[in-house]
């Protein structure tokens, strides 16, 4: 448990751990009646054959996942899926993460640092107790900035405010990576757009198979339909239709609520 509803799980998947690169994800299915959900791989250990995932408990599946104990089995794990993050030849990058998105951002920052990129990280949460991976992110960054919406820790405000200041300070930024709630990514993309700073966002839409077969995860990027699972999960933030992404994420909100309620009542456990 990293904060009150953000959880870290380490799972054994040796073949995936061997091949996985920063930015890739897995599809998990807890049991035969479960749904398939995509989760970005935060870390992998090819020697131990393990993967680390970090997720927010938002529905039945993540709730069940959080309740698993050491030694329990996740029935199906598929991956590594999606394109790895492009990390070559970047001098200075700003990594902007919010909430559970910091879990996805951290491996990118780490991979960038290993390539010699100067990493400036800006991470934020609603309140101090929800902030995750502060120390890990610090170790991957030349500079670390922290914000909370309520001012309980770090700067009072939003990650985008800090990003604006960094841009205004006039230093050269080659790339911005931003991962977090969709509205946050949209604001960050809007901040960098007038400055023409290439901004990559990592998207986490609803998926089923994760191999390009169903099209559930389609997003509109630059007016064209893309499948997040095979074309992404990272896209140019200046081109993504965030409004559409948000409405598609809410497609099953009633059913998700129903499944979660039944799960809590123990009817379906």
């Amino acid at each position: 448990m990293l904060s009150e509803n953000i959880v870290k799980t380490v799972l054994e998947a040796p073949d995936i751990a061997k091949k996985r690169k920063a930015g890739q994800f897995v599809i998990l299915m807890i049991d035969e009646k479960g749904e398939r959900i995509p989760l970005t791989i935060v870390d992998s250990d090819p020697v131990k054959g393990t993967l680390t995932i970090i997720y927010q408990v938002v529905g039945k599946t993540t709730d069940q996942l959080a309740r698993l104990e050491v030694g329990d089995i996740i029935q199906h794990v598929l991956g590594p899926l999606g394109h790895p993050t492009e990390i070559e030849g970047i001098e200075t990058a700003v990594c902007v993460g919010g909430g559970v998105g910091i879990g996805v951002l951290y491996p990118i920052a780490k991979a960038l640092k290993e390539k010699g990129t100067r990493v400036i990280s800006v991470i934020g949460a609603r309140t101090k107790s929800l902030l995750i991976l502060e120390e890990e992110t610090r170790s991957a960054s030349a500079e670390l900035h922290i914000t909370t919406d309520d001012g309980t820790y770090g700067r009072h405000g939003f990650v985008s405010d800090v990003l604006k200041d960094i841009i205004d300070s006039g230093q050269k930024i080659d790339r911005v990576f931003t991962i977090g709630p969709v509205p946050m990514m949209r604001v960050v993309a809007n901040v960098t757009r007038p400055h023409n700073i290439k901004t990559l966002v990592s998207l986490n839409p609803i998926m089923v198979d994760g191999t390009g077969m169903c099209g559930a995860c389609r997003v509109t990027v630059g007016g064209k339909t893309k499948f997040t699972c095979v074309d992404g999960p990272e896209f140019d933030g200046h081109e993504v239709d965030f409004g559409l992404l948000m409405s598609r994420l809410r497609m099953y909100i009633d059913q998700e609520q129903e499944a979660r309620e039944r799960c809590r009542c123990g009817k379906n456990d």
């Binding site: 059913q255 129903e258 499944a259």
Partner: peptide, 14 residues
């Protein structure tokens, strides 16, 4: 995914 048997199965369908 047997969505026709939701909520016994977890996957929804419109």
């Amino acid at each position: 995914m047997k969505a026709y048997r939701f909520p016994e199965y977890d996957t929804p369908i419109a």
